[in-house]
Simulated scan of single mutants.
Amino acid sequence: MRPIRRIAVIGAGTIGASWAAWFLSRGLEVVVSDPSPAAPDLVRRMVETAWPVLGAVPGADPARWRFEADPVQAVAGCDAVQENAPERYEVKQPLLQAISAALPANALILCSSSGLLVSRLSEGCTHPERVVIGHPFNPPHLIPLVEVVGGTTASREAVQAAVEFYRAIGKHPITLNKEVPGHLANRLQAALWREAVHMVAEGVASVADVDAAIAQGPGLRWALMGPHATFHLAGGEGGYEHFMRHLMPAVTSWWESLGNPVVTPALQQALIAGVAEETGGRPIAELAAERDAALVRLLAAKAGP
């Protein structure tokens, strides 16, 4: 794979605009493409808003980007692509086929897909072996995690190049050994959310209290370490081995009663009403800004002095 100095961001919605801001802060040259005429303004606002907290490297320039509506024209001369089109095979596949045909064989194609299979996304692409999932978490300019998936089609070289690229620009890439729908982190989120919905459906707790049970409880620990390491500490001096011997039977008995709720229209409305009550009807932009400011403080705290 070639060194990445110029990258095309294809699809400039919330995720693409956030990626563009982060790439710029790492000193890369960015070409943005999106069919929406509103996209340039969205990217401009995102860069302006995010720049003060991005910790830009010396020489990084927030104005070092340009817009090109045609994705094929946008990728010309680029060393890599971060694709962020809508999450549908019928949209992504022809787009990836078009841009892959316009790129040299050693240019990396990274897909922000939150759950599609890379082996299907790369069908019909020129050099499908260099098409790799590079799935960020929202907002990409703040959350370090990037899931890298090569599946059965990407080469080891391309997967390794993706990992090295994301690590070099300050992200925390993880590699999935095989492809599964939803990748890894979204599946973990989905498992927790399913039980959260079940608890509301069964009348066990309100939406606000379900959220508080995570945000004011285990979620604080999960910001520091994952579930395996968390339960390693829960085992005391004996660690995970002690946990497995003495606490696992209780946990597995809970598994048997975990729910699989049917999300009826009535349940959907109950959840929506519960969130509205929890948030007090505050605007999404206000809630997102509050979240992002807290994320910046949390990341700084995790980084230490």
Rank of each mutant, 00 (worst) to 15 (best):
I272K: 04
G280A: 01
A285K: 12
V263E: 02
D292I: 09
V262P: 02
Q268Y: 04
A288L: 13
A276H: 15
I284A: 03
A293V: 15
N260M: 11
A288I: 13
R291Y: 14
G280S: 00
V263H: 00
E286A: 12
A288P: 01
V275M: 11
Q269M: 05
Q269G: 03
I272R: 06
A276Q: 15
D292W: 11
Q269I: 00
Q268C: 12
P283K: 04
D292A: 11
N260Q: 12
P265Q: 03
R282G: 10
G274M: 05
L267D: 06
P283R: 08
A266I: 02
E278N: 09
T279E: 09
I284F: 03
V263M: 04
I284R: 01
Q269R: 10
A285S: 15
E290V: 01
R282L: 13
A270F: 00
Q268P: 04
E277A: 08
R291L: 13
A276P: 06
L287D: 03
G280H: 02
A276C: 13
A270T: 06
T279V: 10
R291E: 13
V263A: 03
A285I: 15
P261V: 01
E278W: 14
A289M: 08
A276N: 15
E277Y: 03
N260P: 04
G274H: 04
A288D: 12
D292P: 13
A288G: 01
E277L: 06
A273T: 13
E286S: 07
R291H: 14
N260S: 12
L267P: 10
R291P: 13
G281E: 07
L271P: 06
G281M: 08
I272N: 00
Q268H: 09
L287M: 03
L267E: 05
L287V: 03
E277C: 02
